[in-house]
Nucleic acid binder design. Structure first.
Lengths: 222, 222
DNA sequence: AGGTTGAAATGACCATTGGTCAGCTATATA
DNA sequence: TATATAGCTGACCAATGGTCATTTCAACCT
């Protein structure tokens, strides 16, 4: 009854298979953090894991299903970190700040979130996709509950806030995903533009506007 | 001095080359609207244009530079349509409604905007990228000017609004980019989730919150 | 009119990709 | 120790984006 599967041993029990799958995911995440989404190749991942390419496809139906799994794990991981950073009666600014800083700190979460709908989901079997969406719903509900307490909002308002924060996070992150142009070859106007789309301040400013907007709507509905 | 270049004729003058380049772009856009970004292949585009693949690469450095050009043209085209739809003293809701409906109506603009930073820009030469960013700045300024009038905002506020609308548009569009799941195979909770991320109402609601937020900030700064 | 020349166009070719599957082999069981 | 099951393998496939030596066309110059 060994709980570790050496790379040249076969994973026979369900436990061992789960372990191997997780080991592949961990290698994949490290590799992903090195090269990013586009340059990520299944052949190279096979080499890195010490397995044959065909074996990877015993554990994941497609490259995208692997990414979907990585995304799910990063979502869960991030939401725990975010939870831990929340406290009662936060200002909307502090809340937004915590949200964006924890999300940015996880190198996997945002790059995969951004590619979820228009890349990853397009090459994943539908039942797998459904289970992923259901996990997402569960996470949104959990985050909304914590949000409701932190921002003193009703449950319905908190759900609205969380969904909207997701949308805003995707939009605001976009600005950090361009090619790295550390070089000084850029004209000043272009540098200013890029600076003005820096994701964190952009996110925080607008998150505050939206949260305050949602609060106000509730008051005016009384 | 012919202003049309038959497919089996050579484009020799600068004019003819520009014409041919534009003809390729038009075929490419039609093809893109049929199959989308991922399935778009340069070999197939070559067949559709009646040119050899190598010839395409005389007119565009990479697949992505072609997409960047298509994006630029769709940005210009959309902003004209948007201008035409604006009038003096609009409500922020009417403004947001016009913005999102015109953007969605252009089948090319949003799908390319969404992929700009994390896909397209990563395979385009830097000088080309700079010129594209400068075109973007120009468009933002023009749209901001029209916005300033329509929403009765200062120029600075209008620029803030326009930039933020861009961010929100990208985030909100994401929800429409998933695989088409017309099939009834989806459980109810997942269907509800997808419905709640429908881009147009999501965009409008939050655009209003943000615009009103920007207005309020200005007042409280006096 | 016929030759020269430079540049536009070509398409076979290359490395690489995601994905498959017939065959191999490690291992639990009898 | 023999057998059967099933995990694993890697050569193979069709496709991709991109290249470049070669071909071909048309404008120019005798």
């Amino acid at each position: 009854m060994s709980s570790v599967v050496a790379i040249n041993q076969r994973a026979r029990s369900a436990d061992q298979k789960a372990l191997r799958r997780q080991a592949v995911l961990e290698t994949a995440e490290t590799y992903f953090l090195e090269v990013g989404y586009e340059a990520f190749s299944m052949s190279k991942l096979a080499k890195k894991t010490g397995l044959a390419k065909g074996t990877l496809y015993l554990y994941f139906q497609t490259r995208e299903e692997l990414f979907l799994t990585l995304y799910e794990q990063s979502l869960i991981r991030w939401s725990h970190v975010f939870f831990d950073g929340l406290s009662d009666s936060m200002t909307s600014k502090a809340y937004a700040q915590k949200l964006v800083s924890t999300a940015s700190a996880d190198g996997t979460f945002l790059p995969l979130l951004i590619r979820l709908e228009h890349m990853i989901e397009h090459n994943v079997a539908i039942p797998r996709l459904i289970s992923s969406k259901q996990l997402f719903i569960k996470q949104v509900e959990a985050i909304a509950e914590a949000t409701s307490i932190s921002l003193s909002l009703s449950e319905a308002q908190a759900i609205e806030v969380v969904k909207t924060m997701g949308v805003l996070l995707i939009g605001a992150s976009q600005g950090d995903q361009g090619p790295s142009l550390d070089h000084e070859e850029l004209p000043e106007d272009v540098q200013d533009l890029i600076a003005s789309f820096s994701s964190e301040p952009l996110f925080i400013k607008n998150a505050v506007r939206i949260i305050e907007g949602i609060r106000t709507e509730a008051v005016s509905n009384i």
